[in-house]
Amino acid sequence: MQGFTGGDSQGFCHMSARVITITSGKGGVGKTTATANIAAALAQLGNQVVAIDADVGLRNLDLVMGLENRIVYDLVDVIEGRCRLRQAMIRDKRTDGLYLLPAAQTRDKTAVSPSDMVLVCDELRPSFDYILIDSPAGIERGFRNAIAPADEVIIVSNAEVSSVRDADRIIGLLQADEKGAPRLIVNRIKPDMVAAGDMLAIGDVLDVLMIELIGTVPEDDQVIVSTNRGFPVVLENHSLAGEAFRNIARRIRGEEVPFLSLQQNRGLRGWLKKLRGGGK
């Protein structure tokens, strides 16, 4: 399957992609946002990247990546043999090396099986550096499909009790599946609330879940603005969330990147807290 490699390697390539699934348990915590941004950031760093939307029936990765108007075929068309894999892949013209394999919108999760996902990824592996899979919420079929081909799993959580609890459930299921230790992104952190003692700090979440952190992403209005536009926030230079996602991409590549300090005492409440000597 040459042709995905941007032309320079003439189909002569020795790549073998790492398959990384982004999942969460609880819905709405930022899996799709994380997938779109980490994929774009990895491509910007010069990698060949394909993002697969495994949320069959509730596809959104296309919209978040801004590629919704270019879909002809989807994952289920590939699996059911209506098209070849490369026909369903959409190349992002704004970012070299970035591709999307969209989910079907009018089918449900049972149209895909875990072994289908393994086959699709095995076909893609030689042409890419990274395959990122956007998992649906939940612990049922869609989640099973998404983790089946994974070499690594990244769990997204917010600093809030329900999503942390659900993340723990996912960690347990991955352990039972012998999937290797997942890594954690804590998304939508509000530093002022953390400083005031009204939001779990990263350290609290890690104490409870006992897994390795791969990144922290602040709550950032720019995420919503960029999602409105279909233009991943990592492609803008001046956003905290963008920087956080770029850092995660670099850590995935194995670089040592210091964690952004999101927990300093900021704002009036943080300042008052410092006065009282209660800041950590």
């Binding site: 009790v161 723990d168 005031a196 003692g197 009204d198």
Partner: peptide, 19 residues
């Protein structure tokens, strides 16, 4: 106790039972 400390304590308890 801040609300985040309460959250952490409650999470620890519930996860012991979940696990």
């Amino acid at each position: 106790l801040t609300s985040s400390q309460i959250a952490k304590d409650r999470l620890k308890m519930v996860l012991i039972h979940d696990r």
